[in-house]
Design a protein around this nucleic acid. Sequence first.
DNA 1: GTACCTGCAAAACCTTTGCAGCATC
DNA 2: GATGCTGCAAAGGTTTTGCAGGTAC
Lengths: 150, 150
Amino acid sequence: MTRQTHANQCPLEELSLNAIVELLRRNGMRITRNRIRIIDTLLRAEKPLSLDEIQTRTGAADYATVFRVMTVLENLQVAQKVNLNRSCSYYELVNPKQHYDHIICTECGRVTLMIDSCPAEKVERKIEKRYGFSDIRHSLEFFGKCRECS
Amino acid sequence: MTRQTHANQCPLEELSLNAIVELLRRNGMRITRNRIRIIDTLLRAEKPLSLDEIQTRTGAADYATVFRVMTVLENLQVAQKVNLNRSCSYYELVNPKQHYDHIICTECGRVTLMIDSCPAEKVERKIEKRYGFSDIRHSLEFFGKCRECS
DNA sequence: GTACCTGCAAAACCTTTGCAGCATC
DNA sequence: GATGCTGCAAAGGTTTTGCAGGTAC
């Protein structure tokens, strides 16, 4: 019946609870209390969250459930892991209208979203041609000492 | 006596066994069979290696020793972790003369080094000014399907 | 000879899965 | 009512540490 959107390039029109719920529905998945809460938590997050943090902020779901919900969202390409160079994974929602890179303080760990235009986007086309890759996405993080830690 | 080079921006003049051995010596660390072998293995590597791979290729050191040697090299800033989006860490040496970004195939996992000039380097100065960060480095990986997997 | 490094083993962590009961559609 | 989701518990992997003996200097 409903088709997997796994190969879909841009599964969302916009980043909102409704849009994500609609996506779940289109894919034949159920809208549960846990999923709503987790999505809501991610929408409010000011930085990428670990599974632990999502569970704490959500205040309800089991850790394994958080893991499974995040796996679902990742497969639907509305969430992605962010590399913060730590021992566990951090997740954030993917905004279809706006791509953010991250600046991570190596001392205090605080994550800053970079609002400037992304320097890597232009290169993706070049890589498709020169290296023969397709379906390219990228992950760009800057690490350094923030003003307070300097 | 010898000073920590932790804050040093460019601990190496060039990427060679001698240069790294000299750095270890300057920092009061011992030159051991294991360390030589591991550094040699990393110098020959055509891609970032996991602790497992380093141990296998080195063919001698204990896993915990590989871990500890890599931690030392990372602290001296001659090695760094690379984000391949897998379940374990991958390491590569840092070349002071040449910075490489990576293109990772999401199907077969093969890692390609990107020889083009890095699009993120120019942005680092801007981040120092605009966001007040210092000692900036970055990590940039492209993910996509390689020609063979398409 | 001293201080550091290593191997072995175990602990600590994070991620992933099995399964029975529960909730959504 | 059927199917998919959840909680609990346990297993699976990777990373990290303690400690006694070995090695570089």
